[in-house]
């Protein structure tokens, strides 16, 4: 468990899956947490559940694909907690379709949320982030060797996130560290349909012979934000039970 007392986390996609687990983990570690998600009701409920007093948790409706929402969320977080130490953009979408069948609308929607969304919020947060702060982006196993059938759009955005994160590390060092986590198959609502239809196959291809838990990503995100990772920047940590090894 890491110590994040007096630290402030801004996490997007906080309503479910990895974003939610990250919010819960950081809250347990003592951080103040700002939850942003398209699903405003769910993050409001999570905020109330984590901290009924509201002193360390706040939430807001946020559409990752809109630069204006990124500005609103960053402004609100700074207004509420006075600063941003850690930024973890988790908002993402994951549709299934073969590349030849992906519509323009589907392609652009994925790019808009998974790539533009990260750019918008990172760009907005950089000037106000604390010195010694950390950004942790969510890539994916789909970005690495082998690709991911039916996820050409998703994989392309996650590949872009790897490159974007490396540039961030070069541009922001030494003031802010920037890293990524590439999760494998994690038990989240986002891939629930995959688990339902191909769960056994996924597990059999994973050397640890199980799916990951969202908390197992949250703990790595926490490591990357902590002083324990003070010399780690421009890195992507693969958390996938061995299903892809770099």
């Amino acid at each position: 468990m890491f110590e994040f007392a007096e630290k402030v986390l801004l996490v997007t996609g906080a309503a479910s899956g990895i974003g939610r687990a990250t919010a819960e983990y950081f809250f347990k570690c003592g951080a103040s947490v700002f939850l942003a998600d398209l699903n405003a009701n769910v993050v409001a409920e999570l905020a109330a559940k984590l901290d009924a007093t509201g002193s360390r948790v706040a939430s807001m409706k946020y559409d990752a694909g809109h630069a204006t929402d990124a500005k609103a969320v960053v402004d609100a977080c700074v207004s509420r907690f006075g600063k941003i130490d850690f930024l973890v953009p988790c908002a993402g979408i994951y549709d299934d379709n073969l590349i030849e069948n992906i519509s323009d609308e589907q392609w652009l929607r994925t790019i808009s949320v998974n790539l533009n969304g990260v750019f918008y919020i990172v760009r907005q947060a950089i000037p106000v982030m604390s010195d010694g702060g950390a950004i942790v982006n969510m890539a994916s196993q789909a970005a690495h060797l082998g690709g991911s059938i039916r996820h050409g759009h998703y994989g392309a955005t996650k590949g872009a996130i790897l490159a974007f994160t490396r540039t961030l590390a070069k541009e922001l060092g030494p003031r802010i560290r920037a890293n990524a986590v590439s999760p494998g198959s994690i038990e989240t609502p986002m891939i629930a349909r995959n688990i339902a239809t191909r769960g056994e196959e996924i597990v059999s291809r994973t050397p640890l012979r199980r799916l990951g838990k969202p908390e197992e990503i949250a703990s790595v995100v926490a490591f990357l934000c902590s002083d324990a990772a003070s010399f780690v920047t421009g890195e992507t940590i693969l958390v996938n039970g061995g299903s892809y090894m770099g």
Binding site: F223, D227, F231, V232, G234, G242
Partner: peptide, 29 residues
Amino acid sequence: MAGAALLLCSDAGSFITGADLQATGGAHL
């Protein structure tokens, strides 16, 4: 370097295997 070692040798890193964690200050980029 010790924090990364702790991550990879404790339950915090329970779903990480076969990874190569670069603690280089970005020198690997």
